[in-house]
């Protein structure tokens, strides 16, 4: 295996394009090194992106949104009070990943590109309508985060393409988001079901909603119909029950050692209700 530490994205892309065999980009390494060690993936070329200036920075964009550099670790997101105030659901998602040690290294971009259906960092981003800046051999493009994972372990990124950062829109007034997951213990586990909800209110009424589920299908699921049920309401018990039913109905889970199809389907509804309530109270401020 060859190890490279390029100083620009252009150089990284060029290295990847010219590389023989299997290439891996390295950010926090919390997935890549496990795969390397276990022999699941044996890269011929490892391209460490952390030498690229700015890649470990969180920045406010001119329009009031955020750009999160690809190599920013979870602990740095949690320490950014302004980001947490704007997008608590996004931050609480990535902060659920692993231990203190893992939080020092694991990144949102890596969580997205690893393409696990159970990735805790991803539903919150999708609920927030986040995008990814993708740099490749033909220049750079903006992709919706929800379009990046295409199945367990696979993404829509072309060979040689790499994500330079994740973009969150301006939070704006009266908005709130939340992410919840179910695991059988209180920490250090992989989501059995995850759910993110992002709302905007006008007075008591919901005017915009995004509902997103993780770990109940091969990729993260966006639920436009469930979200539509909430618009125009003040999240009364009736609407919450309908939301739960819609979330359960949208699930296409598998049974595995973490949970059965029936269990995941039921829990998806419960989490959708609870996440919606938290998002609502955050939007209320």
């Amino acid at each position: 295996m060859r190890y490279h530490r390029p100083e620009t994205f252009e150089e990284a892309v060029r290295l990847a394009a010219g590389a023989p065999g299997v290439t891996r980009f390295l950010l926090g390494g919390t997935d890549v090194l496990v795969q390397l060690r276990s022999g699941m993936v044996t890269p011929d070329v490892m391209i460490d992106l952390k030498g690229i200036p700015g890649i470990s920075k969180v920045m406010r964009t001119e329009d009031g949104g955020w750009c999160i550099g690809a190599a920013v670790p979870g602990s740095k997101l949690g320490a950014n009070a302004d980001l947490v105030a704007d997008w608590p659901g996004v931050v609480e998602g990535i902060e659920l990943v692993g231990s203190t040690q893992i939080q020092s290294r694991a990144t949102l971009t890596g969580n997205l590109c690893n393409a696990s259906p159970a990735a805790d960092g991803v539903p919150g981003l999708v609920a927030a309508s986040a995008t990814a800046t993708v740099v490749g051999p033909h220049g750079s493009r903006i992709a919706r985060v929800e379009d990046i994972p295409t199945g367990p372990g696979s993404t829509s990124l072309e060979p040689g393409e790499v994500i330079s950062g994740i973009n969150l829109p301006r939070r704006g007034e009266n908005g709130g988001d939340a992410y919840l997951r179910f695991i059988p213990r209180s920490e250090m586990d992989i989501a059995v079901v995850g759910c993110a909800v992002n709302l905007r209110l006008d007075g008591d009424a919901v005017v915009e909603a995004r509902v997103v589920l993780g770990a109940v299908a091969p990729t993260v699921l966006v639920l436009p119909d469930a979200a539509e049920l909430l618009v125009g309401t003040a999240l009364g018990e009736g609407e919450l029950e309908k939301l739960a039913a819609a979330a359960s109905a949208a699930c296409k889970p598998i049974s595995d050692k973490r949970g059965t199809i029936e269990f995941r389907t039921e829990v998806a509804g419960v989490l959708a209700k609870r996440a919606a309530k938290i998002a609502y109270s955050r939007a209320k401020g």
Partner: peptide, 15 residues
């Protein structure tokens, strides 16, 4: 590493 707690099994020596 630079004051941050990490697992040294999840970082390359080259890093």
């Amino acid at each position: 590493v630079d004051g941050r707690l990490i697992c040294s099994c999840l970082m390359l020596g080259a890093e």
